[in-house]
Design a protein around this nucleic acid. Sequence first.
DNA 1: TATTGTTATACTCTATAACTATA
DNA 2: TATAGTTATAGAGTATAACAATA
Lengths: 165, 165
Amino acid sequence: MSDIAITTGNDTAAAPSGQAASDDVRLGVLDFYIGFHLRMAQNASFRAVRERSGNYDLRPGSFAVLSIIGDNPGISPVEVSRAAGRDKSTLTPVLHELIKKRYLEKEPRPGDRRSYRLRLTEAGRAHLEEIAIHAAAHERLLDSIAGPRKAELIALLRRITEELS
Amino acid sequence: MSDIAITTGNDTAAAPSGQAASDDVRLGVLDFYIGFHLRMAQNASFRAVRERSGNYDLRPGSFAVLSIIGDNPGISPVEVSRAAGRDKSTLTPVLHELIKKRYLEKEPRPGDRRSYRLRLTEAGRAHLEEIAIHAAAHERLLDSIAGPRKAELIALLRRITEELS
DNA sequence: TATTGTTATACTCTATAACTATA
DNA sequence: TATAGTTATAGAGTATAACAATA
């Protein structure tokens, strides 16, 4: 079952999922690929978040950053980048923007002058609570789709993240 | 279980998954978010594919495009875009590059002069078979991570894609 | 009027490499 | 030497809007 025959013709592949993506297009081997469906689901989720929050300031990236900092006061930029699974260089502009907006403040880190400690400001906490409402609404939608299998889905996604890192 | 309390402080959230992302960083509510883990897993998978195929010409996007066209000879660009879950405008450069490389050929579509029919060339089929080997290797890795729950994982991801479209 | 494919433009997310200042 | 943060640069992926040709 995990060893999939690679066929590139259209005469052998079956389309097991009915209307998977379009009307009568055969997805062939892609329909058995976790990687493909992972990308499709993530794209759909991303689009849904953007549509929901066109006006609000909810982007998946900065929501995660604010949330992580809110849960870990005094955390350093590298630690945030590791928790969010991104390179540290990608965090610099995000943090600077959030600091400029007065959502974050930096404090010196005692004992290491290369680094600094991050903390939400009052405005940052209020902002996070506001965008968290929209994030939670999106999440409830995902919850209703996953139903009782949510825990299992998360466990599987977490394993993928861990094993591929 | 699906109704998650939104906390932005660090004194209430628990970290149920041990070393989820980094050493002792609390992920807080994010750790219960399907959307967050979806993004993390997709990023990790994307990275793994790129590392595996640094030399080969395997990109998730064009692999899916070639694969879909291989399974649906004569398909139109819009149909490909719908099957791949992308806007039609994003397909134009991909198709043109694949045509330029002689992996694809276009034929006139009888009865509709706005559109055309896409088909793999012999070289395109050979190329697809080659990159499919690497895609399949990556997929086997994902298979081994999902284990017996692969079918369920794919079903859940497919539902997310469908419901959010 | 609606659809197909194209073009122009732009944004997000991400990465690598090189740099500085510290450790 | 190694690490933290920054900067510069780049690339992949995606989207919207407007357009010409055709339906």
